[in-house]
Structure formats: structure tokens, C-alpha cells
Computed example of a mutant assay.
Amino acid sequence: MTETPPTVDAYISAQPEATQQILQEIRRTMHAAVPGAGEMISYGIPTITIGGHYVVYFAAWAHHISVYPVPRGDEGLAAELVPYLSGKGTLKFPLAKGIPLDLIAKIAAQLAAEKKMGH
């Protein structure tokens, strides 16, 4: 995709059909985990926001979904994230393995809590 999509809907609709369904599930999961969240496109990818400030980004790739950044404040959650860590601040969830929506909900909730604490 060379042009930045204007909305999260446009971003999702530009993806392969199977990936669109997964992105919609992730989007719903993140909104449920972050009450009152908004959304926008930032850095060319979907972004869940609180009060206009980013909380969590997610993006579709050929073989995985990436979620950024990695939450820092919960050691139990950090241990659950180890298999998905990829580089600095990135989590990769392989499309072939099924997306752990419960874990994505925890990530979004933790990032929202960190944002509210000013981290």
C-alpha cells in the first residue's frame, strides 16, 4: 500500500479478505478493552487512542499482525508476550496460528493503563 489510508475502515478494506476479518476482531477487542477509545490512522496504520493520544497500533503484514508498542508495566503479561516479541517494541502474531484475542485485550488494557499513568 503506497498511499496512507484516510481511516481505519479504509486500511482494513485494503487488506486480503481473510485478514480483514482478523483485523476487525482485533479492532473490536481493543475497543472493548479500552473503554471510551477512539481510533485514527497514525504512521499509516490503525491506532487506538484515548483523548487523541495513541495507546496501541496494529498492522497487517503478509504472514502476521503486528501490535506496537510492547507494554512494560506488568511482569505476568510480559512473560505471556515472550513468544511474540520481535525487535524493539513490536509483537508479531502469526496469521497461521490464530490470533490470541484475549492476550490482545490484555495488551490494549495495559497500554491504556500505562498511558493514563503518564508512561
Score class of each variant (00 low, 15 high):
M40F: 13
T90H: 00
M40V: 14
A62V: 07
D9V: 00
T7Y: 02
A109D: 01
R27G: 06
E17S: 11
T49C: 04
E39Q: 15
E75D: 11
T4Q: 13
K106E: 02
L101Y: 00
Q20S: 01
T4L: 12
V8C: 10
A112K: 11
E17M: 08
E25C: 04
K92W: 07
L91R: 12
S86H: 11
A113C: 14
T2C: 06
I26L: 12
V70C: 10
R28F: 01
Y68A: 03
Y84P: 05
D102N: 00
L103C: 01
Y84S: 08
Y11Q: 00
P5A: 09
E39G: 15
S86R: 07
V34Q: 02
P69W: 10
V67H: 07
A62I: 08
H31Y: 08
I12V: 14
I26F: 00
P71R: 03
Y43G: 10
E75L: 13
W61P: 02
E80W: 09
I50V: 15
S86W: 00
T2M: 09
M117D: 12
T90S: 08
A113H: 13
Q15K: 05
A105I: 00
E114H: 08
H119Y: 14
A79K: 11
R27E: 10
S42H: 08
V82P: 09
P6M: 04
D74W: 12
